[in-house]
Amino acid sequence: MLLSPTPLHIPDGFLNLVISLIFWVATISMVGLAISKTNKTLGEKQIPLMGVMAAFIFAAQMLNFPVAGGTSGHFLGGALAAMVLGPWAGILVMTAVIAVQGLLFQDGGLLVMGANIFNMGILTAVIGFGLYRMVGGAKKGLRLTIAGAAAWLATMAAALLTALQLWLSGTSRLEIVLPAMLGVHILIGIGEAVITVAALAFIERTRPDLLNAEKTAASGGRGWIMAGILVSLLAVLISPLASGSPDGLERVAADLGFLGDGQASSYQILPDYTIPLLGETALSTIFAGIVGALILMGLLVLLGRSLRKAGSGK
């Protein structure tokens, strides 16, 4: 089979409704921001460029290379897309790719698409571009090294977040899914890093005009460096903490109301939340989802504002 589903494309059914909705809200806000940003910065040429680039990422994901024992390394491309096109365009390109994979090939679900886009398109763009932007003016060797590290870290962070989502949905046990996900992606991430660096080096050699420092700086403000470093640190800190003492993380999640011991209560996001009239039915689940989504939306609006400020202040 040519389109082998990567372990990061979550199908429908594996995430619960609340987690699905929360990440839909996060994704929709970021994509909305990306649309308004690219409209301003890229001009009328943006549409065909991003469209063909999305097809490029799609095709590049098919370029596989034999690793060992019949398995092959695959390419995600989120970090590379953000590095060469800028973070906003990168997010839109990856959104289109993941949407088409889910819709046309059932590679990743529809209700969970928000989470898939967030993990593989937005998180990878923040880490990939943020760290790359930091060394924008540096020498080629350093720049490519950081680009590779960023691509590896972006893959690991996507795997980490996927594992956390599966766990919070009550689909997987944290102490199993986390080391499994991270373990698999240590290797996949190295492939991602090498391909990203080789592709960047090739582009720089043949079309240096596409990758110069000014272009990188113009495509995303300094706020991205901060965001990239913060998210990377968060990922680096959570991984060993969670794999070292999953019980600790479990307790935190339980305190926050994510995890209960019963089946229906694993949906609850608000602590001690009950609506007597609705009881533990589908309705209360939806309601909890909406409330959780609203809270998150508020946080994202704040984040978006600060990003915009940081962007205009450059």
Binding site: G73, L80, I203
Partner: peptide
């Protein structure tokens, strides 16, 4: 090599 193919495809 795969990365260079990706770069080629990108251009």
């Amino acid at each position: 090599i795969t990365g260079e193919m990706a770069g080629q495809l990108f251009l």
